[in-house]
Design a protein around this nucleic acid. Structure first.
Lengths: 336, 336
DNA sequence: TATTTTCATGAAAGCGATTTCAATTGCTTT
DNA sequence: AAAGCAATTGAAATCGCTTTCATGAAAATA
């Protein structure tokens, strides 16, 4: 007992009009006499007709679907962007095909290709690193691509971000002003440009301005996880650093908990500032001072840009930089 | 300079074969002479032909896309399920259209309908409550639906869950065995059957077995959030409860932090057990004893079931119950 | 009233694949 | 060498909708 599907043809026949007319009323085309529209609408209602989006997509060459490439949905940072993306997409009647890439270059390219095969009207890409391969794929794709929370140092692709370098610079400068001389920097993989080219740059700029020496022994590369933080803590403690800027909230939580459990007081012996202002920063004790980012908005703005591109409109600015803030919590001392 | 798309027709012409043959080689149909296959493959390569999934979907009536309805991607619990779903989907060459429903009945119905319009081959639904309206929509949908981490007391729709009632019963029994007489229960909305019909039932069963009186003043209904927890804590403290079972990890974290800040020691004055074993349970101090659930697997198994249904196979069991565990951490005392 | 314009509508050609069915080809088997 | 079969292949219909173009009807202009 396969369920019978009602097609536009059935509606046309029942309403004694042509398919073209039915199509017009379904799509809100004004060139239909009110009486006709009403008649067609009644039949649609009666037959419970639902337009087939696939057929529509084939005929119109627009799928009203956008692809979203995300490293991992379970990562709260990216999930927050995804939420902003989906809300705006829904507002504009688009749906989201969401795929996890695990940040793996090869997978990212694959996924992008299957999305293009599905005829998505556009793509929002989130990831930690854009390499040449990917950049080339973006270029050959026939649908527009926008980066969300993702930096491309070459700036070829439209993107929405905060100024990571400035945020780190400001955070580290704060630490310096409170008298710290040895400030550690705990980041994710330096192969990712957000770390190597933005956060590190901000860090160096802060040191430079204060005429503090740069010591690469204070730069730590670890995973984006709680456990990575707990493992890293003794190393940081040994370095003699009295403050640390951390690139990931869970990592920061690990560092804090491990510090306290090993008798290192936070913030007295070690001040900690982290990057993403997730709920984690409020749950730890002490709570963690953090850069704040408008996560939802980064996604939302990226999606808005994409809708423009999908409608062949010009972008006001190709690279959007949203404002960041710094939420002071208990893992840092108050300014003097 | 619109990018020119290569169609199956172009390949057929260049390879001097029919579209049917090209279609066969693309789809791995064995009825093609090896030499022909090779020739076609070469042309495909040369022209960089990519089959149009929309056209394919229209012709074959299968979109190789499944819809996923999720309350909120930023909720780590559901996001974990989603990850399991996507991984298995990818394994079976399906893509995921992901939409947030905010647990709102009307929105859920809307979303389900747009998914059906997009001709998804199946749907995985996650939510906190299934009402009659939704149940009716599932029934009239022409694609199969599977519930993941979502209970339907009527059991009409295939689903994957743990035994929530048993898990709560076991947790509460543990508390009782350690001598607690007044055990609070902090849940999300009681309008949701997971709370009203499962967790509450488990709680009552534990009390019953121990011949402890049931007091509905010890049942608290709050939001699934950290702040809801901090607000709830003084109320629980006033009740005289010496232990609490909490339905959400962030809420539990809020209760714990607020307790400690108001001088209530955890676990000495208040033992806490929570439900979802997210990273939050490891970050708080004390860390939180929790029911453990195979979140990823719940999603993965649900997707596996869905693939069977989409291929008209019979399900071994319609209602799958995966095993849970209890991770003992510092918010409870050790057994005596 | 005759002539333009504007409106509403329908016919039919795609969109880019899959799939059925018939035709052809190439081997085997007598 | 003729007949029989299986393996390949192609022609053409179809999927359900959009969209162009032509046409007839109605309204506006002269």
């Amino acid at each position: 007992m396969e369920k019978q599907t009602v097609t536009i043809y059935d509606v046309a026949r029942e309403a004694a009009v042509s398919m073209a007319t039915v199509s017009r009323v379904v799509n809100g085309n004004p060139n239909v006499k009110p009486a006709t529209r009403k008649k067609v609408l009644a039949v649609i209602e009666r037959l419970d007709y639902r337009p087939n989006a696939v057929a529509r997509g084939l005929a119109s060459k627009r799928s009203t679907t956008v692809g979203v490439i995300i490293p991992d949905v379970t990562n709260i940072y990216f999930a927050s962007l995804a939420r902003g993306i989906d809300d705006i997409a829904m507002m504009y009647k688009y749906n989201i095909i969401l795929t996890n890439s695990d940040d793996a270059g090869e997978q990212e390219v694959n996924v992008l290709n299957t999305l293009m095969a599905k005829q998505v009207d556009g793509v929002i890409f989130m990831g930690n690193h854009i390499d040449d391969k990917l950049r080339a794929e973006f270029k050959r794709a026939k649908a527009p691509v926008v980066l969300a929370g993702t930096v491309d140092p070459q700036g070829d692709t439209p993107s929405v971000n905060i100024d990571y370098a400035a945020a780190v610079e400001e955070s580290v400068t704060n630490l310096i002003q409170r008298g710290h001389k040895k400030i550690a920097l705990a980041l994710g993989p330096l192969s990712q440009s957000i770390n190597a080219e933005y956060r590190l740059t901000g860090y160096k700029r802060a040191l430079n301005k204060a005429k503090l020496p740069y010591d690469d022994k204070l730069i730590y590369e670890a995973g984006y996880s709680y456990d990575a933080g707990t493992k890293l803590q003794p190393v940081i403690a040994d370095s003699g650093a009295t403050a640390v800027f951390v690139g990931d909230d869970e990592m920061a939580a690990g560092i804090i908990n491990a510090s306290i459990e090993s008798g290192v007081s936070v913030p007295d012996d070690l001040e900690v500032i982290t990057s993403n202002d997730t709920i984690v920063t409020q749950i730890t004790r002490p709570s963690i001072t953090s850069i704040t980012q408008p996560l939802y908005d980064i996604g939302a703005v990226a999606m808005r840009m994409l809708t423009k591109l999908m409608n062949d409109k010009e972008l006001d600015e190709k690279t959007v930089t949203l404002p960041y803030g710094i939420a002071r919590r208990a893992s840092t001392k108050s300014a003097e």
